[in-house]
Every structure is written in structure tokens, then in C-alpha cells.
């Protein structure tokens, strides 16, 4: 079969969600019987928990299947008016975000000038960060500007956040920093 670049783009965009499988479907290959059987086995006896895809802003609803507290499958929620059970290739791989041997699970600390990380206790690291925040705040706090304006702030700390974090995170983050007088609070939403 001869397929030009433009033809391939046309087929993949119309045959689903722009995936290679979409391309195969567009070219007349059907995978339906095999996938239906696999789905049925994977979620047998599983508990279902509603969730949302953490990638783009469309907000596709997902269902998380767990067996004995272990994630076995994540798929689109067929009830969702946004995605009607479908997911794009990234969304279909949410499972791999969780069940992944490369995931970081330990707290690491690097001393000034040191050449390596050290694995440290979570509670110790939290205490140390709190200490550093207090030190920096106390050393740099500005109550009034030279012109007499009351500002009660410090420009010397920066809180930068991503945009796949919950509203509840954003609220606690901005409340924490504004409460301390820190104003440089930014997010992926800026850029």
C-alpha cells in the first residue's frame, strides 16, 4: 500500500486520537476482538476508583482499577461527556506513571559543595527546610520601603509550581508563602 506523508496524517488524525494504532485502523486493520478480551481479564475482581487524567487540560475522566490496593489498570471513564471512555496515547499510559521502576521514592540531600546525594530521613529534611526558610526570611524581610510604604514582604524566596498539581495544592502553596510575606510565587501557567 502506497501512503504519502499527507495521506498518513489524514488517516491518523481521523482514525482515533492521532496514534499509530489509529493509523492502522485507518488502513483497515481491526484490533477490537483482542483488546476486548484483554480488558475483561485485567479488571476482573478489581475495585474501581474515579480519577482524572493528569496530562493536558481537557480533563478526561478515568477509572483506576485496583486489586488488593495495587493498581492493575487505568482506562477512560465511559460516562464522561469529554472523553466517553477514550484516552489519547499519553493518557492511556497513566498506569506507567505509577507502576514504574524508575520512580523516585527516597528523600535526597546534597550538602553545599558536596559531590553526591545522601539519602536522608523525611522528617529531618522537612525540619532543615523549615529552618532555612526561617533564616532567609528573617535576614531579608522588608517591612517598609525607603519611601515609607508598608510592604511586609521578602523578594528573596521563590516558589515555583507545575500545572498538573491540584487546586488544593495551589491554595496551600500560595497561602503558605503569602502568609510568610513571600510574593515571588509562580507557576507553569505563566509560561
Amino acid at each position: 500500500m502506497q501512503v504519502s506523508r499527507r495521506d498518513f496524517l489524514r488517516l491518523t488524525a481521523s482514525g482515533g486520537a492521532g496514534t499509530a494504532i489509529g493509523g492502522l485502523v485507518g488502513l483497515g486493520v481491526t484490533l477490537a476482538p483482542a483488546t476486548a478480551r484483554a480488558q475483561e481479564l485485567r479488571i476482573k475482581d478489581a475495585k474501581t476508583t474515579p480519577s482524572i487524567c493528569p496530562f493536558c487540560s481537557v480533563g478526561c475522566a478515568t477509572l483506576i482499577h485496583t486489586v488488593n490496593g495495587k493498581i492493575v489498570n487505568i482506562e477512560g471513564d465511559p460516562r464522561s461527556p469529554h472523553n466517553e471512555g477514550t484516552l489519547c496515547p499519553k493518557g492511556a499510559a497513566i498506569y506507567q506513571l505509577h507502576m514504574n521502576p524508575n520512580r523516585a521514592t527516597k528523600v535526597l540531600h546534597r550538602k553545599p559543595g558536596a559531590g553526591d546525594w545522601e539519602v536522608v530521613e523525611l522528617e529531618w529534611a522537612m525540619d532543615r527546610v523549615a529552618e532555612l526558610i526561617k533564616k532567609t526570611r528573617d535576614e531579608t524581610f522588608i517591612e517598609k520601603l525607603p519611601n515609607g510604604k508598608l510592604v511586609n514582604m521578602t523578594p528573596a524566596m521563590f516558589a515555583l509550581g507545575g500545572a498538573t498539581l491540584d487546586n488544593e495544592f495551589n491554595h496551600t502553596c500560595q497561602k503558605f508563602w503569602r502568609g510568610l510575606g513571600v510574593v515571588a510565587i509562580e507557576n507553569q501557567a505563566r509560561i
Binding site: 482524572i52 487524567c53 493528569p54 496530562f55 493536558c56 487540560s57 480533563g59 516558589a159 509550581g161 507545575g162 500545572a163 498538573t164 498539581l165 491540584d166 487546586n167 495551589n170 491554595h171 502553596c173 500560595q174 510565587i185 509562580e186 507557576n187 507553569q188 501557567a189
Partner: peptide
């Protein structure tokens, strides 16, 4: 991103 509207509304 999934919550980029949220981080503008709940402003970080």
C-alpha cells in the same frame, strides 16, 4: 495542563 486553569484561578 490538567490544572493550569486551576493554578491561574487559585493563583500561584
Amino acid at each position: 495542563h490538567a490544572a493550569i486553569q486551576g493554578s491561574t484561578d487559585v493563583p500561584t
